[in-house]
Simulated scan of single mutants.
Amino acid sequence: MTELPHTRSRTAHWLATAAALAAVLGATALLQPATATPASSSGDSSAPAPDPDQAHYPLDCGQGGSGTDVLDAASADFDGDGTDETVAVVRCRAHGGTPPSAVFVLARSADAGAPRVAATLVEQREGMSVDDLAVRGAAISATLLGYSSADVPRCCPDKRRKVKWEWREGKFVLRAAPVAGGGLSV
């Protein structure tokens, strides 16, 4: 039986993908947007966490986009101010295929309107899917799924990496697990 070209993985592909993933994850950790603080001025712990279905996400869903889907969400008081923030895995709604996901941290808006995006942990343009979202204390963990090349079918990611963001000194800091089998880490 003949193997398809996209099913063979070579060391060069793994190293190139690991380097690209390391660069993207490193840039994400270092280039937090100015709004990367979930701090709220109200300090009201009795109010519910922001509802991820009510937020407006900075996603490019194409012309006449069909909306967004919140795939997973969890809440915690990440910054210790007494109010919960919500972390949400979101992607453009699709009627077929698997569009890339993004991960946002939401905070309540000061005017009781729609929740605001306080931090972006994974951007849509990174082309990844996000799985296994979990929140423990002030830490967010997830598994990022990606592709080693454009030849890999979009249904079947062939790269996987566990990551964790911790709230430290006023921002989320990324900690990535080593790439399996490659010995490389971010």
Rank of each mutant, 00 (worst) to 15 (best):
L4V: 01
R8C: 02
R8Y: 05
S9R: 13
T11C: 04
L15G: 01
T17I: 00
A18L: 02
A18H: 06
A19D: 07
A23C: 02
V24S: 03
V24L: 06
A27N: 07
A27V: 00
A27L: 10
L30R: 09
L30Q: 09
P33G: 08
P33M: 04
A39S: 11
S46N: 10
S46F: 09
A49M: 12
A49K: 04
P50C: 08
P52L: 05
D53R: 14
Q54H: 13
Q54G: 08
Y57V: 09
Q63V: 14
G65F: 11
G65W: 10
G67M: 07
D72E: 08
A76P: 04
D84F: 05
T86I: 01
V89D: 07
H95A: 13
G96I: 07
T98G: 13
S101Q: 05
A102T: 09
V103S: 05
A107T: 09
A107Q: 13
A107I: 01
P115E: 08
G127N: 03
G127W: 02
S129M: 10
V130T: 04
D131V: 00
D131M: 03
D132G: 02
L133Q: 05
G137N: 02
A138S: 13
A142R: 10
L145R: 15
A150V: 05
D151V: 03
D151Q: 14
V152R: 15
V152L: 11
P157C: 12
K159R: 15
R160Q: 15
R160A: 14
K162R: 10
K164G: 08
E169A: 14
E169M: 06
F172G: 02
F172L: 07
R175Y: 11
P178K: 05
V186F: 13
